[in-house]
């Protein structure tokens, strides 16, 4: 019997290896050809940083990069505040009302992004809000609240209700208990959620596409309009940088909470946690 347990599922291992190759092949190709000194996307003729040099001198693109960073930062801040409030409130208000509010917050997660995007576009135009980076931020916050709420609620479930009572017992008003005890204990989760939302919003194309104004446009929107007209080494360079930035953020989101203490990392939250 021990023999049967030890046996590796050969087919599954094969599939996994092929999967990882398939997963990384196109990305690595992009990275590789971003360093090509010719315009070709099929033959690598020599190492060069010329496409990166082009990027650095592309004003419009740099504006878009700054715009995306601003949007991501603002949306992260906004959704952290609102999502945490929601998570704390939902923890206490149970029953039908709490369930309803909880369900409404989760709706953006099960709505195709294009629907959310279209709806946001109609709302902003309907109330006469001029499309700009501000409208992008509003839409992204709405979309990201759910992520923050889910992650924070996951962490809250791990903090015994008794901790809050202990704070009250030791002289905290309800508000102080949240500020001095609950929030600090939530910090790892908040950090993880913040990094996750930042990465998601920074990269998000669909919502930004529907809700942005003309100038400056968030980076993904600008990249999209260039991609539509074809493949170019300059986009390889942007793509490589965006991939690196995202990867860094994700790694930070995974590692930082661990470093800050024994909190659950976002990875655990994504995969449903390990107890």
């Amino acid at each position: 019997m021990a023999r049967r347990v030890e046996r590796k599922p050969v087919v599954a291992v094969g599939v996994t290896i092929v999967f990882f190759a398939w997963l990384y092949l196109p990305i690595l190709a992009v990275a590789l050809f971003s360093l090509n000194d010719k315009k070709s996307l099929s033959s690598f003729s020599g190492f060069s940083l010329r496409w990166y040099d082009d990027l650095v001198h592309n004003e419009a693109l740099l504006d878009s990069l700054v715009a995306s960073l601003q949007v991501a930062a603002a949306a992260t801040l906004g959704s952290l505040v609102l999502g945490t409030m929601l998570a704390l409130g939902l923890e206490r208000i149970r029953g039908r009302r709490g369930n309803l509010i909880g369900a409404v917050t989760l709706l953006p997660l099960v709505t195709p992004e294009i629907v959310t995007g279209v709806a946001a576009l109609l709302l902003f135009t309907g109330i006469g809000l001029k499309l700009s980076l501000t409208t992008v931020v509003l839409a992204e916050i709405t979309f990201s609240i759910a992520y923050v709420t889910v992650i924070v609620r996951g962490r809250l479930a791990g903090i015994a209700l008794e901790v809050e009572e202990a704070a009250r017992d030791l002289g905290c008003t309800p508000f102080q208990a949240v500020r001095l005890v609950i929030l600090p204990m939530l910090l790892p989760a908040l950090l993880g959620a913040g990094l996750l939302v930042f990465a998601l919003v920074f990269d998000d194309f669909v919502l930004a596409f529907f809700t942005t104004g003309v100038d400056p446009q968030p980076l993904p929107v600008r990249v999209y309009s260039s991609i539509r007209f074809g493949v170019s080494p300059a986009i390889n360079a942007i793509g490589t940088l965006m991939l690196l930035a995202s990867a860094l953020l994700i790694v930070a989101a995974l590692v930082l909470p661990r470093l800050l203490g024994r909190g659950t990392s976002s990875l655990d939250l994504i995969t449903g946690g390990r107890r």
């Binding site: 992009v30 390889n236 990867a247």
Partner: peptide, 21 residues
């Protein structure tokens, strides 16, 4: 993590990567 990293990286860029390939 190796699976998550490229997936959280830009969806657009990944589509573009296939297009280029």
């Amino acid at each position: 993590a190796a699976i998550v990293v490229p997936f959280f990286a830009s969806y657009l860029i990944r589509m573009y990567a296939w297009k280029a390939l």
